[in-house]
C-alpha cells in the first residue's frame, strides 16, 4: 500500500508546472522516507532532482519501495482538475502498479474528485551526485533572480556569473552590445532585498540562460533561491519547499576558450 496526502495540493501542482518544460517523463521513487525523483532534459545538459520528506505530508504510508513512471504532460492534465485549495492524495495498493490514483478534496470536504493515471515503464537514468562543498553559495530573492535572467536573456543566450566576497555579477555579451548586473551582499530584513553570499573561493562560470529561465518556473515554490557554484562543476539551483523538501536543478556550464 502506498498513500501520500498533501494538505496543500497546490505545492504539487507548482512542482509539476516548474519541471514540465524541462522533462517529459520521470520515475518517482516512493520509499518509507518519502518521494524522490531525478530526471535529465533530453539534451542531458540539465538535471532536476526532487525530494519530498514523509514528514511534510498530512498522511504518508509506503509499505515497500515502488517506482512510479509518469508522463509529466499527462500528470499535468490531471492536476489541472485539482483546485488550488484542494488536498491531493496519491494512492496505489498494487506491488507493481500499472496506474496511480489521485484524490482531490476541497477544504469543506464537499467536493471529491477521483482520477487514475496510467503509469509507464521507464529506463532509470539516475546519476550519482556527490555531496559537494560549493565554493560560492548565493542566497537571494527567487523573484529577483528570475527577473535578472529574463532581462539578460533578451541581450544574450548566455550569462557569466562571477562571485567575489562582496558581490555577484551577472554579465552578458550579445550582438547588440554588452552589460552586467551586480548584486551586493545585503543583510536586509526583507526577503525580497536580502542577499547572502558565502564565498570561500570566487568563481566565474558561464551558463545558458534558456535553462535558467526554465528553472525559474519554480519561483512560486519559494521566496528565496540558492545558487551553488564551484569551478569545473555544474551549477546547483535550489528551491526549498517549506517543511516538505526541496527542488534542485543542476546545469552544466558552458566552456569558454
Amino acid at each position: 500500500m502506498f498513500e501520500a496526502k498533501l494538505q496543500q495540493g497546490v505545492i504539487f501542482k507548482k512542482i509539476v508546472d516548474a519541471i514540465k518544460d524541462l522533462v517529459k517523463s520521470v520515475n518517482i521513487d516512493a520509499s518509507t522516507s518519502g518521494l524522490s525523483m531525478q530526471a535529465m532534459d533530453s539534451a542531458h545538459v540539465a538535471l532536476v532532482s526532487l525530494k519530498l520528506n514523509e514528514n511534510g505530508f498530512k498522511d504518508y504510508r509506503c509499505d515497500r519501495p515502488i517506482t512510479l513512471g509518469l508522463s509529466i504532460e499527462n500528470l499535468s492534465k490531471i492536476l489541472k482538475c485539482a483546485g488550488n485549495d484542494d488536498t491531493i492524495t496519491l494512492q496505489t495498493d498494487e506491488e507493481e502498479p500499472s496506474s496511480l490514483k489521485f484524490f482531490f478534496e476541497n477544504q469543506q470536504a464537499s467536493k471529491i474528485s477521483e482520477f487514475s493515471l496510467n503509469l509507464m515503464s521507464l529506463d532509470s537514468e539516475s546519476l550519482g551526485i556527490p555531496d559537494t562543498d560549493y565554493s560560492s553559495v548565493i542566497q537571494m530573492s527567487s523573484a529577483e533572480f528570475s527577473r535578472i535572467c529574463k532581462e539578460l536573456s533578451s541581450i544574450s543566450e548566455t550569462v557569466e556569473i562571477e562571485t567575489s566576497k562582496e558581490s555577484v555579477k551577472f554579465s552578458v555579451q550579445g550582438d547588440i552590445g554588452a552589460g552586467s548586473i551586480t548584486v551586493k551582499n545585503n543583510q536586509s530584513d526583507k526577503d525580497v532585498d536580502r542577499v547572502d553570499l558565502q564565498i570561500d573561493q570566487p568563481v566565474k562560470l558561464t551558463f545558458a540562460l534558456r535553462y535558467l529561465n526554465m528553472f525559474n518556473k519554480a519561483v512560486s515554490l519559494s521566496s528565496t533561491v540558492s545558487l551553488n557554484m564551484s569551478e569545473e562543476n555544474p551549477l546547483m539551483v535550489e528551491y526549498k519547499i517549506d517543511d516538505l523538501g526541496s527542488l534542485r536543478f543542476y546545469l552544466a556550464p558552458k566552456i569558454s576558450d
Binding site: A43, G128, T206, A208, K254
Partner: peptide
Amino acid sequence: PDPQKKITDYYKQA
C-alpha cells in the same frame, strides 16, 4: 558560441 558541457560529463550513472 562556447561549447555546452553535458551533465553526464560530471555525474555518472548511479
